[in-house]
Design a protein around this nucleic acid. Sequence first.
DNA 1: AATACTCCCAACCGCCAGTAC
DNA 2: GGTACTGGCGGTTGGGAGTAT
Length: 264
Amino acid sequence: MGRAPCCDKTKVKRGPWSPEEDTTLKNYIHKYGTGGNWIALPLKAGLKRCGKSCRLRWLNYLRPDIKHGGFTEEEDNIILTLYHNIGSRWSVIASHLPGRTDNDVKNYWNTKLKKKLLAEVTTSPTTTTIATATATTTTTTTTTNNSFSHAPSSAYYPNLAPEMLGISTQFPLPRLIEVPENGINSNSEFPLSQQLSSFSPSFSLDKSGISASWSVNGGCEDDKFLDEFGYGLSYDLLDIGFDFQDKISEINPSFTNSYDSFAG
DNA sequence: AATACTCCCAACCGCCAGTAC
DNA sequence: GGTACTGGCGGTTGGGAGTAT
């Protein structure tokens, strides 16, 4: 048996909201709140709308803190950076942009930013060679340089480490880099910068696949550390290529050649 | 002025996770 | 543990507005 629909679609109004409906919904929520039950809300408020439709209308349009109007360049950069880090997780991206909704960001990406990004990529003649390691093989591919000219300010990323932001503008990261306020490793007594400066990985490849190990603060860590970096699995670190190597090498010269010797 | 085309965005759809029973 | 229900999310669509021909 399939799932029951959230409402009887033959008995609810669909399509664009009228100003009267907007007013009714706004007044009801200001007076009574959502009551934690969107499905029951339209009946109580006297609206012939599906509860989901009411929720969307409120969250995406009627909320008082919604910011309407064009996106700023700062917002562009935040979206571009986060999209490269985490992909199309619009709600997460929107949570970094006060007043913007996931729908806004999604629409903006689909209609404007995607094209802007494509334009940047196609007009950039430079290419970067990236070594890509799978579980059992190492291959070399060529990809276009998709770095952005405007590095985002860490002021817009209260929960992201500034060092990682610098890295993240250079290439796509496999997942969100979110770190606790007190550093990248919540169990570490060392600040992020110190953890990064003592980050010393090495790689090896055997018939069982890739293994990566690295030392931090003199101790040896496992994949958990990479996971806390936002890279997750060892091969994610390899996927992201030379830019990562360069960035880490800037911070810690001892990293040099570790990656080269592995990637060949 | 009429038509075709493109752009933009509000709204819908369907899936998934969490939760109550 | 199974089922039903809701909230939340990302993908997609429909149609109005604007622009080009």
